[in-house]
Simulated assay, not measured.
Amino acid sequence: MPTPTAGDEAAIRQSVLAMTTAFNTRDDAALIALSAPDADFVTVVGRWTRSPHAYVESRRTRFSGPLKNASLRPLETHIRFVRPDIAVVHVTHEISGMLDEAGQLLPPHPEFSTRLYVKQRGRWLLSAFHNSARVAPVR
């Protein structure tokens, strides 16, 4: 089995950035193109969807409410290859412009996602995504 290359890591990093851009521009088609057809998504509020199409449909509701002015800024990306064709990716980003239930602007805050990428027919596709609010470390 071939070993991952610097090109593999670069392709995954580019996919992470493209997913961020798709969020910031509300580009559903771009997100779907970056994902495997059977990809799982778990949002920061615990909603689990089992395809990119179901995920973008679900997030449209949030984009018309608390996320209507939200944008992401990536802070850190860490990639670990489990196999040459599978990578676990941890991404920390800052979300700003999010509204609370009363419609008041929340301060920018970090979120953390774990993503599973699988190389299929030469392309790195998002296969699983789980987003969490990032809290201060316990001392």
Rank of each mutant, 00 (worst) to 15 (best):
L125Y: 12
R123K: 15
S35K: 01
H53C: 05
M1N: 10
R59G: 06
V16K: 09
W124P: 00
P37N: 08
S35C: 09
D27W: 06
N131P: 01
K119Y: 02
D27T: 01
A18S: 11
H53R: 15
F129V: 05
Y117V: 03
L125K: 10
A70G: 12
F23A: 09
P110C: 04
V42G: 00
S35R: 01
T49S: 14
A39V: 02
R80W: 08
L105A: 14
P66N: 14
P107N: 09
T43Q: 14
T3K: 01
H109C: 08
F112V: 12
V16A: 11
S71H: 12
T5L: 09
P84R: 11
S51G: 04
N131W: 06
R121V: 11
R80L: 09
F129E: 10
A136S: 15
A70P: 04
V42E: 08
E57I: 01
M19D: 10
Y117A: 00
D100L: 13
V138M: 14
R123F: 06
I12G: 00
F112C: 13
D100K: 02
S132R: 03
I86A: 04
P84V: 00
L34H: 03
E94R: 12
N131K: 01
R123C: 05
P4F: 11
P107G: 12
D27A: 05
T21C: 05
W48E: 05
R26I: 03
Y55R: 07
P108V: 02
Y55I: 01
L17C: 08
V118I: 15
T114E: 05
T77H: 10
T61Y: 13
A128E: 07
R121S: 15
V135M: 10
L116K: 03
V91L: 13
V56Y: 03
G46I: 08
T25W: 05
D85M: 03
P66C: 08
T20S: 00
V56W: 01
I12F: 11
A11S: 14
R26N: 01
L72P: 00
V56Q: 00
R60D: 10
G103V: 06
V42T: 14
